[in-house]
């Protein structure tokens, strides 16, 4: 059996929405280099809809795939839906992750929440 599902490998080899949004409305960074995973999410939001999303990730194959899948799952969706994205949904969409890699999907969920928090705090100003 391979280490990862076909879907994980597809998102790892061809990550979707890689890059930076210079004038992002919300930016979130989670994880730390010490643990070997850092995810950074950039959101563009128009009328409460996530019109664009990009990510940068330092991490293993499943961290890159989780970031990529998470961006796909929230792109074009209302903020309310993105807020409800769970790590389980990310892992399921990837046809599963090995147990010891589940924290990668948790990071993806947290990265999106962190970027949305950033957006909300900027809105509050």
């Amino acid at each position: 059996m391979a280490l990862y599902s076909e879907k994980v490998m597809d998102h790892f080899r061809n990550p979707r929405n890689v890059g930076v949004i210079e004038d992002a409305d919300g930016v979130g960074e989670v994880g730390n280099a010490k643990c070997g995973d850092i995810m950074k999410m950039y959101l563009k939001i128009d009328n409460d809809i996530i019109s664009d999303v990009k990510f940068e990730t330092f991490g293993c194959g499943s961290a890159i795939a989780s970031s990529s899948m998470a961006t796909e799952l929230i792109k074009g969706k209302p903020i309310s839906e993105a807020m409800e994205l769970t790590n389980k949904a990310v892992a399921e969409a990837l046809d599963g992750l090995p147990d010891y890699k589940m924290h990668c999907s948790v990071l993806a969920e947290e990265a999106i929440k962190s970027a949305l928090d950033d957006y909300h705090s900027k809105q509050g100003k």
């Binding site: 991490g59 293993c60 194959g61 090995p98």
Partner: peptide, 26 residues
């Protein structure tokens, strides 16, 4: 960069290598 990603992409290029990477050992 992180070692496991490096290994997986090298494998795609036909190179079998290893790393002391945390992720490979769980």
């Amino acid at each position: 960069i992180e070692g496991e990603s490096l290994l997986l992409l090298l494998d795609d290029k036909g190179i079998m290598a290893s790393s002391g990477s945390a992720c490979t050992s769980g």
